[in-house]
Lab assay of single mutants.
Amino acid sequence: GQVNVNNTTYTFPTPKLAKEFAQKAAKKYNLTVHVSGNTVTVK
Rank of each mutant, 00 (worst) to 15 (best):
F21D: 00
T8P: 05
S36N: 12
N4I: 12
V40T: 01
A25C: 15
K16L: 10
N30S: 06
Q2P: 12
L17I: 07
Q2L: 11
N38W: 03
T14D: 05
N30L: 06
K19P: 00
V3S: 12
L17G: 04
K27P: 02
T41Y: 09
S36T: 09
Y10F: 10
P13G: 06
A18D: 00
T39K: 09
V35S: 02
H34E: 13
A22W: 02
A25K: 04
T14A: 02
H34I: 15
T8W: 15
F12V: 00
S36E: 12
K16N: 07
Q23N: 09
F21Q: 01
L17E: 10
T14K: 02
N4V: 12
Y29P: 07
T9M: 09
V40Y: 04
G37F: 05
Q23K: 14
V5R: 12
H34M: 13
G37Q: 04
K28D: 07
K43E: 13
V33H: 02
Y29M: 05
Y29A: 05
S36Y: 09
T11P: 02
Y10A: 01
Y10P: 00
T39H: 05
A18G: 01
K24D: 04
N30I: 03
L17S: 05
L31P: 01
F12I: 01
A22R: 02
K16S: 08
A18Y: 00
V3W: 07
N6K: 14
F12P: 00
V5H: 12
S36K: 10
V40C: 00
N6H: 15
K27T: 08
V3I: 12
Y10I: 06
T32C: 13
A26F: 09
A26R: 15
L31R: 05
A26N: 05
H34Y: 14
N4G: 12
A26Y: 07
G1Y: 07
T39V: 11
V33W: 03
K19N: 09
H34P: 01
G37N: 05
P13Q: 09
S36G: 03
P13I: 06
T11Q: 06
G37L: 04
N4D: 10
K43V: 15
V33G: 01
N6Q: 13
E20H: 08
V33K: 00
K27G: 06
K43T: 14
P15T: 10
A22D: 00
V40W: 03
V42I: 14
F21I: 02
L31E: 03
Q23V: 12
K19W: 15
F21K: 01
Q2N: 11
K19E: 10
T32G: 05
T11R: 08
N30M: 07
G37Y: 04
N30H: 12
F12R: 00
T9Y: 09
F21V: 02
K16Y: 08
A22Q: 02
A18L: 02
G1K: 08
T8A: 08
T39W: 03
K28N: 08
T8F: 15
F12G: 00
V5G: 13
T8H: 15
Y29V: 04
S36R: 09
T9W: 06
Y29G: 06
V5I: 13
Q23G: 05
Q23R: 15
G1V: 14
F12K: 00
H34S: 13
G37A: 04
K43H: 13
K43S: 14
L17Y: 04
K24P: 00
S36Q: 11
K27M: 09
Q2R: 09
A25T: 10
Y10H: 03
A25R: 03
V33I: 07
P13M: 08
F12T: 01
T9G: 03
N4R: 09
V33Q: 01
K28T: 06
Q2W: 11
V33N: 00
Q23I: 13
T41M: 07
G1F: 10
K27E: 10
A25H: 06
L31Y: 06
F21W: 15
V42T: 03
T41I: 13
Y10Q: 01
P13H: 07
T41E: 05
N7V: 15
T41V: 10
A22V: 02
H34A: 09
K19I: 11
T9L: 07
A22S: 03
E20Q: 13
H34K: 08
A18K: 00
A25F: 15
K19Y: 13
V33Y: 07
E20G: 05
V35P: 01
L31D: 03
A25E: 03
G37R: 04
P15H: 14
Y29E: 04
E20S: 09
Y10S: 01
N30K: 09
N4M: 11
N7K: 13
S36D: 11
T9F: 07
Y29I: 04
N7F: 15
T14Q: 02
L17W: 04
K19A: 10
T32P: 05
V40Q: 00
Q2G: 11
N6Y: 15
F21E: 01
N4A: 12
K24N: 07
G37H: 04
T32E: 11
V40A: 04
K27N: 07
A22N: 01
T32W: 07
K28W: 14
A26T: 08
S36M: 10
K28F: 13
K16M: 09
P15E: 14
V3A: 12
L31I: 10
E20P: 00
Q2A: 12
T32M: 08
K43N: 09
A22F: 02
A26K: 13
F12N: 00
V42Q: 01
K28L: 14
V5Q: 11
V35W: 07
L31G: 05
V3Y: 07
K27D: 07
K28P: 01
Y29T: 05
K19F: 12
N6T: 13
N30R: 08
V33M: 05
V35R: 06
V33E: 00
V5A: 11
P15D: 08
K24Y: 15
L17C: 13
T9E: 05
V35H: 03
P15A: 14
L17Q: 10
K43R: 12
F21A: 03
S36C: 08
A22P: 00
